[in-house]
């Protein structure tokens, strides 16, 4: 159970699914997200319960974002970018950060 979810871990997991070329299996997803197993399981279960992630029709062990999950990812990415500043294609900051 997660008390209060960490936005960065949620965002990282949502982004790992969103940036995959298609539905993704759990193990590769964990590696893409860069999370240890325990945290990955907890947050994935949370996202499944909240309806942001679902099993893909292509296979039970494949996962993909629901429309709610896509919206949640966009909300988080926009919010975090607004707070910390934009990054380029390689994840490097663009321009000066606001002081």
């Amino acid at each position: 159970m997660i008390g209060r979810p960490d936005l960065f871990v949620l965002g990282r997991l949502l982004e790992a699914i969103a940036s995959a070329p298609g539905p993704v299996r759990r193990t590769p997803l964990q590696q893409r997200a860069g999370l240890n197993y325990t945290v990955f399981q907890r947050y994935l279960d949370y996202l499944l319960r909240q309806g942001m992630v679902a099993s893909s029709p292509a296979g039970d062990d494949l996962l993909e974002l629901t429309p709610k999950g896509v919206e949640a990812y966009r909300f988080l990415a926009d919010g975090l970018t607004r707070i910390f500043g934009p990054v380029d294609g390689a994840g490097r900051p663009i321009g000066e950060r606001r002081a």
């Binding site: 940036s19 974002l65 966009r74 975090l80 970018t81 934009p86 994840g91 490097r92």
Partner: peptide, 21 residues
């Protein structure tokens, strides 16, 4: 039906995490 994933030019959250780090 699942909405298509947003087109991503960058892994934005990961970039922000780098900034936090």
């Amino acid at each position: 039906m699942v909405a298509p994933a947003p087109a991503l030019e960058a892994r934005r959250v990961e970039g922000v995490i780098a900034d936090v780090r």
